[in-house]
Structures are given as structure tokens and as C-alpha cells.
Design a protein around this nucleic acid. Sequence first.
DNA 1: TAAGTATATGAACAGATATTCATATATGGA
DNA 2: TCCATATATGAATATCTGTTCATATACTTA
Lengths: 97, 97
Amino acid sequence: MELLSEDKLIDMAELFKIFGDSTRVKIINILLDKELCVCEISELVKASQSAVSHQLRILKQSKLVKYRKDGNCTYYSLSDDHVKKIFMLGREHLDEM
Amino acid sequence: MELLSEDKLIDMAELFKIFGDSTRVKIINILLDKELCVCEISELVKASQSAVSHQLRILKQSKLVKYRKDGNCTYYSLSDDHVKKIFMLGREHLDEM
DNA sequence: TAAGTATATGAACAGATATTCATATATGGA
DNA sequence: TCCATATATGAATATCTGTTCATATACTTA
């Protein structure tokens, strides 16, 4: 464990864990180009409103998505370019296998 | 789900899932610069030989590590640069938070 | 060949996690 | 105000996952 502290490694595992669920990855995927509200996300990823809401909470807590409220709706979007970068690198890796 | 097929997204989640465990991330971390045998890995990451062996199997199955046998020992190393890249990007992300 | 060392692996168990269901909260419109 | 819609959330449940323990396998050396 020369290069990184144990704490940092645990944080890294936590970060990748967020990307390690297909519902969350699907959500990230559809948020790549535009913000969407919960019910749109729910339809697009074919998961229940509740399941999506739970997963959005996890993404929110990890600061991978941000949101804004507008009337009845809550619009979610990716919080920064790093999320996109990590996503793209995973995609790249699979393409090259 | 415009950008990627559902299958590909599931594969991506599977890939990130591998990085989403602290024991595996620790193993990857110490393999960044050199190959190591199982008992060395076991000592360095402070996990039992059995736990490490199980995790190495998972890393092997996902093609994230490769190995060579030499006598009694099995030496593991990262299978390609993508593993290193993904690891580094995760690290970078955390540094910038 | 016998003993020791290194590794792998199956089974069992405990803890984590994702979904569902029911329900709460909050906003908008009639 | 009353109702519909959108979202959030707690509890329960089922499934998944990582570790341990016991043991098997294989190589090495005395």
C-alpha cells in the first residue's frame, strides 16, 4: 500500500461501487447529454419511480448528480465532467476487449 | 438509453463493480508498479490468503489481472493499461473533490 | 516418499444492497 | 379547499457478495 493510504483506497472503492449498479449506470447514461426529471428517468431506464428515486438519492449523496426543483418536478443532471470521464473510460475499456 | 445498449450498460456496471470493493482496489493498487505473488499480496493488503485468492479469481475472471506460475508461487500483475487508467481516474476524481 | 509451503476452492455465514410496497410530503390546478 | 401529480422515504424482503473455515491440489525439498 505504498501509493495511496488505506482511507483513500476505501474512498475509491466507494466511488466505483456507485458505478457498479446497472440502474445507476443507466441513469448516468441518459443524463450524459441533458437533465431529466424523475418520471422521465423512470420511464427511460424502465424502473419504478421509487427505485429510481432511491438510486438518485445515492447518486446525489455521492455528488455524482445535482438537481433543481421546478414546480412539481425535480430535474437531475450530472454534477461534473469527472462523472462523464469515468463513464466514458469504462465504455472505452469494454470496447477494446 | 440512446447512447448505449442495455447489455453494454450492464457490462459497464459489472466492470465498475469489480473496482467497487476495497480489498480488490488495494490489490490493484499494489500491483500498479510490480507483479507480486499471493502471499506477498496477502501481507500487503492485510487480508487472509483465502480472501485474497478469492478476490484474485474475480479479478482474473474479469481479465483485470494476469498471472504466471513459478514453482510454488503464482505471480499476479495488472493485465493492461486500462486497469491503471480507470484506477487513476478514480483517484483523480477524489483528489478534486 | 514424507513433510512443508503456496495456492485454490467449496460451503456456510454474515452483512450489504436493490427493489417493492405503503405512505408521506409538496406543488399546481380546479 | 380538494384532488391530482411528482417525488421522497422508511420498512420489509430477497438477493448478492465477501470472508472464514476446512480442505484439496501441486510443487519443493529433505
